[in-house]
Simulated assay, not measured.
Amino acid sequence: MAEPLLRLAGLHTHIGQYHILQGVDLVVPEGELTMLLGRNGAGKTTTLRTIMGLWRASAGSVSFAGSDLAPLATPEIARLGIGYVPENMGVFAGLTVRENMVLAARGGELDQGRLDWIFSLFPALARFWSLPAGNLSGGQKQMLSIARAMVEPRRLVLIDEPSKGLAPAIVDALIEAMQELKRTATTILMVEQNFRMAQALGDGVAVMDDGRVVHSGRMAELAADQALQGRLLGLSLGAHQ
């Protein structure tokens, strides 16, 4: 088997006195979208933030394309080709949509061909290009947050709950955009609570509970096994179609 693009081994993270990650083992194959599922408080967001160096691991390793990320600062990790879409979107409300995109581009230069591709996925960004990002709706801000991670080719994109609080029509648009991003062979690790979205997009899946990965496999197999869904997640994916 090929070496996975991202591998977490025995990963522990403390935040103050709290021991959040308690030995996370996770592999993310190159060219796939891996869903990271689990109940609230399981450690999913902390996992993404630890990968990006926003939280420091207290033990274990994070390997990306054979490189150890542990000693690197967040900007250095990003320069390796890793994009990050945080749960809070991280949009600069006082800057225009264009300025938000420029900040995410290496050297502040936007590639027009790639920009046209992004506009085809998120037409609202073209309409509001010169307006403050604070004027956007919640769904449009999420589109901007994802577009910033797509403004340059990335080997890996980490996305934290992109559908949170969004209307079903906006979720459908995000699913289509993520499917298009998958076609570029970009590797994606996504935290998501919307199981319709998880089923539509996921190739592989890892389920976390209490700071550990308690299940890993193929998303289609989890989606087809309601008993396993209930045991791991306390609910059925079929109830969230």
Rank of each mutant, 00 (worst) to 15 (best):
residue 3 E to C: 01
residue 3 E to H: 03
residue 3 E to G: 03
residue 4 P to G: 03
residue 4 P to R: 00
residue 6 L to T: 04
residue 9 A to L: 08
residue 11 L to E: 09
residue 13 T to Q: 07
residue 15 I to L: 15
residue 19 H to T: 03
residue 23 G to Q: 06
residue 25 D to M: 01
residue 27 V to E: 11
residue 28 V to Y: 04
residue 29 P to L: 11
residue 30 E to Y: 04
residue 33 L to Y: 06
residue 37 L to V: 14
residue 39 R to I: 09
residue 42 A to M: 10
residue 43 G to E: 08
residue 45 T to W: 05
residue 45 T to F: 07
residue 46 T to M: 11
residue 47 T to M: 00
residue 47 T to I: 11
residue 47 T to N: 07
residue 48 L to N: 05
residue 50 T to D: 08
residue 52 M to Q: 13
residue 54 L to R: 00
residue 55 W to F: 15
residue 55 W to I: 04
residue 55 W to L: 11
residue 57 A to G: 13
residue 63 S to Q: 14
residue 63 S to P: 01
residue 65 A to D: 15
residue 69 L to S: 02
residue 71 P to L: 07
residue 72 L to A: 12
residue 72 L to P: 12
residue 76 E to T: 05
residue 79 R to P: 10
residue 85 V to N: 02
residue 85 V to T: 04
residue 88 N to L: 03
residue 89 M to T: 09
residue 92 F to V: 07
residue 93 A to Q: 13
residue 94 G to W: 12
residue 97 V to L: 06
residue 97 V to M: 02
residue 99 E to V: 02
residue 103 L to I: 15
residue 104 A to K: 05
residue 112 Q to E: 15
residue 113 G to S: 15
residue 114 R to K: 13
residue 116 D to V: 00
residue 116 D to K: 01
residue 118 I to P: 02
residue 120 S to V: 01
residue 121 L to N: 07
residue 121 L to C: 12
residue 123 P to A: 09
residue 124 A to T: 11
residue 127 R to F: 11
residue 127 R to Q: 15
residue 129 W to H: 07
residue 129 W to N: 05
residue 129 W to D: 14
residue 138 G to H: 10
residue 140 Q to A: 06
residue 140 Q to P: 07
residue 141 K to C: 12
residue 144 L to M: 06
residue 145 S to H: 02
residue 146 I to Y: 01
residue 149 A to N: 04
residue 151 V to Q: 04
residue 153 P to R: 14
residue 153 P to S: 07
residue 156 L to E: 09
residue 157 V to S: 01
residue 157 V to P: 01
residue 160 D to W: 00
residue 164 K to R: 12
residue 164 K to P: 00
residue 173 A to L: 06
residue 173 A to T: 05
residue 179 Q to H: 12
residue 179 Q to V: 07
residue 180 E to K: 10
residue 181 L to I: 13
residue 183 R to D: 13
residue 187 T to P: 01
residue 188 I to S: 09
residue 188 I to W: 02
residue 189 L to V: 05
residue 190 M to N: 06
residue 191 V to D: 00
residue 194 N to A: 01
residue 196 R to P: 13
residue 197 M to P: 02
residue 197 M to N: 00
residue 202 G to C: 10
residue 204 G to V: 08
residue 205 V to F: 05
residue 206 A to S: 15
residue 209 D to C: 10
residue 210 D to W: 00
residue 212 R to T: 14
residue 213 V to M: 06
residue 213 V to P: 06
residue 215 H to L: 13
residue 219 M to Y: 04
residue 222 L to P: 02
residue 222 L to M: 03
residue 222 L to Q: 02
residue 223 A to Q: 03
residue 226 Q to C: 06
residue 227 A to Y: 01
residue 227 A to L: 13
residue 232 L to Q: 12
